[in-house]
Amino acid sequence: MTFAENYHDWLRDAYAMEKQAEKMLSTLIERSDRYPQFRQRLEQHLIETRHQITRLDEIFERNDISHSLIKDTVSKLEAFGMASVTTLSSDEIVKNAISSAVFEQLEVACYTTLITAARQAGDLAAVPVFESILQQEKSMAEWALRHLPDITDQFLLRSAPAGAGAKH
């Protein structure tokens, strides 16, 4: 494959990943009522994600890249379970917070790769877009990891039987 073919393929993957993130974030928001700080940050990142999708669409248009393979790529990502949102488990919020942190790291790696690929393929106009998105993803990844202990503590305190931990 040429530099451009690899770049376009990875761009399609990034687009599919963002579409999957949009679905995942929407579901997580619906299921995090008892964790307002987590919910608020997810809502903020959903807005960022939707803007990222728009910016990726602009790169597709400018490069005359077909969106025809995106549905297939999205299906592959969903089947692979990259953004699995756990439901019906008592510790759903903790598992969702972990999944969110992991997914954000995937996005960081993807945009880091796209920056190099865009340069090699000669799409220098896309580099600042990817750098901007990368900063948003890093910020969300850092937030998710930094707040994982808080979410876990809140869950454990809410789920502990009365009197549990009284000895500590």
Rank of each mutant, 00 (worst) to 15 (best):
E104I: 08
R119T: 13
R39M: 14
Q135T: 14
S84T: 14
K167H: 12
W10H: 14
L134Y: 12
D57N: 15
A162G: 01
Q105M: 14
E131C: 04
A101Y: 07
K167Y: 13
E104L: 06
Q44L: 05
V74N: 05
I47D: 06
Q136M: 13
D123M: 01
F3V: 05
H168A: 15
D64W: 03
H147A: 00
E131N: 10
G165S: 10
Q120W: 09
R50Y: 02
K23L: 13
F155Q: 04
Q120T: 08
R55V: 13
I93P: 03
A141E: 08
T54V: 15
P161C: 04
T73E: 11
M1L: 09
L106T: 12
D64Q: 12
I115A: 07
E142A: 10
Y111G: 05
V102S: 08
A144Y: 00
I29K: 01
G122H: 01
A83G: 12
I151Y: 07
E43S: 11
H45M: 03
I29A: 00
A16Y: 05
D57S: 11
I98R: 06
V129M: 02
R12V: 14
W10N: 10
E131G: 10
Q40V: 06
M140Q: 12
A14N: 04
D150V: 12
L157C: 07
L88M: 10
V94E: 08
K23G: 03
Q44R: 10
M1R: 10
